[in-house]
């Protein structure tokens, strides 16, 4: 239809409506995202904070906020905290999700009650992280239900003080992240496995491949792009880790700031209106996430164009 001259004319006369419908997104994005982003960059080059009622700056100081961050502050330490806690949650999350997604899609096993299990494991993803963290704080407090159960089973004599020990405090945060995200990852991986050509499994079965061989030689290599996608999106999410450790540790990163994340540090500066250091840390996080986002963009676009081509003709 669009090949005829009349059709062409029509599509030209309507095309201005494209801009009209596109405008709200770009106006809002420009005002509330782009301008703030550049204003954040700009602020990172100024000394601008308050001590009590006294305002210091704004005074242009070049890169000294960045130098401050890398040398004098604990930012590298908080970055490592964030990374460790992300890994502690992500590694088990990926392993469990891989296992579950293979089981759920196996035509050999034909597990029952799949909808029930999927519903249950996805559920924590929708929970308010603030409330979830508060719930965990209550459950794992010195006189909370978990300590009650541990004592009555004779595992410990005195309450185990989870938030005073580095390993268990980080472990709790990782556990919460694991619980909130493994269902989501399982569902993504399942979609990936179901996209694999059934005839490959058929051929492997005829050749007498064991289920382990099928997993390592067929599923894993073909799933690789999705695994990369899952890992990078999860890392971007991990860098944003805030609600859970903030509320679990009262914003202090207990014990001794070993659970303090990058965004918790940023949040402190936003509250105290320290725009220089806050800006520098924001810019740093932006640079890291921008690189990661670009990888996700490449994967998504490649996938989008190949699937729309498939759908066309």
């Amino acid at each position: 239809m669009r090949n005829t001259i009349a059709g062409k004319k029509k599509s030209i006369s309507y095309s201005k409506w494209g801009y009209f419908f596109l405008a709200p997104f770009f106006i809002i994005y420009f005002i509330f995202n782009l301008i703030p982003l550049f204003s954040t960059f700009y602020n990172s080059f100024f000394e601008n904070y308050r001590i009590g009622l006294m305002q210091v700056g704004p005074k242009f100081v070049g890169f000294s906020n960045y130098i401050e961050i890398f040398t004098n502050s604990n930012v590298p330490r908080y970055a490592v905290n964030t990374l460790i806690m992300w890994l502690m949650g992500f590694v088990p999350q990926l392993l469990v999700s891989l296992l579950l997604s293979v089981w759920f899609t196996s035509s050999h096993l034909r597990l029952k009650g799949q909808n029930f299990f999927k519903t249950v494991i996805y559920m924590p993803n929708l929970i308010m992280a603030a409330a979830f963290a508060m719930l965990f704080f209550t459950l794992f407090s010195d006189s909370g239900p978990v300590n009650d159960i541990l004592i009555s089973m004779g595992v410990v004599d005195t309450p185990y003080r989870f938030l005073t020990i580095k390993g268990s405090a980080r472990g709790l945060i990782a556990l919460m992240n694991f619980l909130m995200w493994y269902g989501n990852t399982t569902i993504l991986l399942m979609a990936g496995i179901m996209g694999i050509d059934e005839s490959l499994f058929e051929a492997a079965r005829i050749d007498g491949a064991s289920s382990l061989q099928v997993f390592f030689r067929i599923i894993l290599p073909l799933l690789l792009p999705i695994l990369v996608y899952v890992m990078i999106t999860s890392l971007i999410g991990g860098i944003q880790m805030f609600d859970v450790p903030q509320i679990l540790t009262k914003g202090d990163g207990l014990p001794d700031r070993t659970t303090m994340t990058l965004i918790m540090y940023l949040n402190k500066h936003l509250f105290s209106r320290n725009y220089g250091l806050g800006g520098a840390v924001s810019t740093l996080i932006f640079l890291i996430t921008a690189v990661l986002s670009f990888i996700v963009y490449r994967i998504t676009m490649k996938n989008y164009f190949s699937s729309s081509k498939k759908g066309d003709k």
């Binding site: 599509s11 309507y14 095309s15 201005k16 409506w17 494209g18 801009y19 419908f21 596109l22 997104f25 770009f26 994005y29 995202n33 301008i35 703030p36 982003l37 550049f38 204003s39 954040t40 700009y42 602020n43 999106t233 971007i236 860098i239 944003q240 805030f242 965004i263 940023l266 936003l270 725009y275 806050g278 800006g279 924001s282 810019t283 996080i285 932006f286 996430t289 921008a290 990661l292 986002s293 670009f294 996700v296 963009y297 998504t300 676009m301």
Partner: peptide
């Protein structure tokens, strides 16, 4: 609609999709 800049707009939206809102929170 097939308008000029459509592809650029589409790619722009896809490109910023994963950028976390916290990085511009200060501004």
């Amino acid at each position: 609609y097939r308008f000029k800049g459509r592809n650029v707009a589409f790619r722009f939206i896809m490109l910023v999709m994963m950028v976390p809102p916290q990085v511009s929170a200060l501004g």
